[in-house]
């Protein structure tokens, strides 16, 4: 049985159940697990944003960290220089990232398949090098490779600063749920169907009168808007933002792999990918801290290869079918009795 994005109804119960469990668990867990769950939600949200264009329209971008970086940098810079609250900076950054995404993608969407992927990598390298080597852009300080360390002033909700990890968790969780909802609505709308048509054959889609570039650009704009908010969250949560991580090709690949492993082009795929991969890699890298620095990313690579081999549509459909079988076992009898 295949689990398609538009058939969320079949798994709706599980989606709600999973979300409620995810929302409740950190209330009873220690700081360590709260930290991991924050990362789960953060990566899931970023992967949802990536999936919005790359999963649905099939344009493999490996440069999405650029938009995350721009969102994070803009909100951080206007916070540190002008004292504007990151809540406002987040929206400003997202708007800029969205415009930039459209400007960059308009020419590069003409490229197909791996050519588009390569162009996205070139953009990440270009902007990453630029940010690491620029101390200031006119009157705006960028701070080059050293990045920005945000000052800590305590618990200020207005300034996106909290003393408890739980607050950050619920912000990331809310972002994730909003992302999920937006993706779900998109997958059931005209845009979603257009994107799936474009993914399967863009020439055929064009011949049916779908304005391929227009709908891809709309999806790209929404995707950039969403992922740049993840950048602001990153800066505020870690209290640091620097080009090594946030403008890196590695982060782009990591986000893409989470969505691909979970199941690209499905509503739940990115979340399933994040729930499986993030705790595993965090626990492993904590266990071997300092000795084997590549272990968690090595794991991503190996899991990716296995998924390509054995589960071409991602983990998602397997998880869902296992859960549905479990449902059948547990509730099937009761349901049948109720029918009789």
């Amino acid at each position: 049985m295949t689990y398609k994005g538009n058939s969320i109804f079949k798994g709706k119960f599980f989606v709600w159940l999973a979300l409620i469990i995810l929302a409740v668990v950190p209330l009873f867990s220690g700081l360590y697990w709260q930290g991991i769950l924050v990362l789960v939600c953060y990566y899931a949200y970023a992967a949802i944003a990536w999936n919005f264009i790359c999963g649905y329209a099939g344009t493999m971008s490996l440069g999405h960290s650029v938009y995350m970086g721009i969102g994070g940098y803009i909100s951080t810079i206007i916070l540190e220089t002008k004292g504007v609250s990151p809540w406002i900076g987040m929206i400003v950054g997202a708007a800029v990232a969205m415009c930039l995404g459209v400007i960059i993608s308009y020419p590069t969407f003409r490229l197909k398949g791996p050519y588009f992927t390569l162009s996205s990598i070139a953009i990440v390298e270009l902007l990453g090098t630029f940010i690491s080597n620029t101390e200031s852009l006119g009157p705006v300080p960028i701070k080059g490779g050293s990045g920005w360390s945000l000052s800590q002033t305590g618990n200020q909700a207005v300034m996106f600063e909290f003393s408890s990890k739980l607050s950050y968790f619920y912000i990331a969780f809310a972002l994730m749920v909003i992302g999920l909802f937006v993706t779900y609505r998109m997958s059931e709308s005209k845009l979603g169907y257009y994107l799936v048509a474009i993914r399967s054959d863009d020439d055929a889609a064009k011949s049916l009168g779908i304005n391929v570039t227009k709908y891809k650009l709309i999806a790209m704009a929404i995707s950039c808007f969403m992922i740049s908010i993840a950048g602001t969250f990153y800066a505020q949560y870690f209290r640091y933002i620097g080009p090594d991580r946030i403008f890196s090709y590695d982060l782009s690949v990591q986000v893409a792999l989470i969505a691909l492993i979970g199941g690209q082009g499905t509503v739940m795929g990115p979340i399933i990918g994040a729930i499986i991969l993030v705790p595993l890699s965090e626990m492993l890298s904590a266990k071997f801290a300092g000795q084997m620095s590549g272990l968690n990313l090595f794991l991503y690579g190996v899991v990716m290869m296995l998924v390509v081999y054995f589960m071409p549509h991602g983990f998602g459909e397997h998880v869902v079918s296992i859960l549905q079988k479990a449902e059948e076992k547990i509730f099937g009898r009761i349901k049948r009795k109720a029918k009789d």
């Binding site: 099939g58 493999m60 490996l62 398949g113 791996p114 992927t117 690949v253 792999l257 691909l260 084997m292 620095s293 590549g294 272990l295 990313l297 090595f298 991503y300 690579g301 190996v302 899991v303 990716m304 290869m305 998924v307 390509v308 081999y309 071409p312």
Partner: peptide, 20 residues
């Protein structure tokens, strides 16, 4: 595309194996 994804995974695995 699946071959491309496979080689991306392979790249990640080899690089980080050597890093380890």
């Amino acid at each position: 595309t699946s071959v491309m994804l496979f080689t991306i995974g392979l790249d990640y695995a080899i690089c980080n194996l050597y890093l380890m």
